[in-house]
Amino acid sequence: MTTLHLLSQSPFTSPLDSILRPLGVRDGLLLCGDACHALQPGSAPLELLEHLPASIAIHALEEDLQARNLTAPERVQVVDYPDFVELCTRYDKVNGWL
């Protein structure tokens, strides 16, 4: 059973570590909204993400990156809305961290 986890809260107001802990090794992560700030270069949240097992795919919503003038590191796949839908079909479940 694999789960796609949707994150929209900023990692600076809602700590990432408690969210990342229950992640399965084949789960995926989609950063949208203020959660994209986790990709801020040199930040503690980015370091946390970079230490996730390589089997956990990390995605970020393109328009939310653009709105924040952020560039995705190599590890992170940039997705648009059609990709977002496709991701939901690729994983068994979708869990939104509200």
Binding site: L6, S8, Q9, S10, G33, D34, C88, T89, K93, V94, G96, W97, L98
Partner: peptide, 10 residues
């Protein structure tokens, strides 16, 4: 449904 997708927060 095959998938439930929830949106909320910010």
């Amino acid at each position: 449904a095959d998938r439930l997708v929830c949106f909320g927060g910010v």
